[in-house]
Design a protein around this nucleic acid. Sequence first.
DNA 1: GTCCTGGTGG
DNA 2: CCACCCGGAC
Length: 226
Amino acid sequence: MEKEIAFLMDVYRRLYDYFGPRGWWPGETPLEVVIGAILTQSVAWRNVEKAIDNLKDANLLSVEALAVVDQEALEPLIVPTRYYKAKAKKLKVFINHLVGDHNGHLDSLFQGEMEEVRRKVLSLWGIGPETADSILLYAGNHPTFVVDAYTRRIFHRLGIFPEDVNYETMREYFMRHLPVDISLYNEYHALIVGLGNRVCAANKPDCRQCPLHDVCQKFRKESAHA
DNA sequence: GTCCTGGTGG
DNA sequence: CCACCCGGAC
């Protein structure tokens, strides 16, 4: 048990020393974080920025404006994020719940015991575990660990998870072995994403410049063959 | 052609 | 388990 804490904190320190603080989430307000978390599903963040700029230019970055805008009017603005019809619906579903059950206030939505809030957010159509945890951590200041496809890929290569590990198993691993710390969870996930899209790529990982190469099982195996 | 901070429905 | 949603950068 103590070994896992030491390992996870060593990985964290290496990533932090390599990248520095990432300053996440890249959104200016809690509402923007929520919108970004939905729009970034399976899409590069670069595309999300375009959509958020479009929403901002249309004066739609407020609960009041999003509450009255038609779903069909939302669609053309978020085309850069792919699946724009589905995502327009997801945004409306979230806003409708926020207005209907919380008088439009995110503070009210986030109030209460974390797992209770998480179940409530997860029950909304279009909000899966990664989006829910991103919203809870980065907009709601709840200490939940966000995991994603990068986390699975990186920690599988490190030798920690099987390739087909599910979301909840990964989340529980981090939350069981790390101290409950919002800032740590915030930065750790951001660093994992940084490594995932800059170094530990799906096809051609750049293992030579990876700050984790000497503790990586996959790297050791490939070296053993050389 | 590949990959990108997923989620739903069959 | 798999199809679908369905744009943009490299």
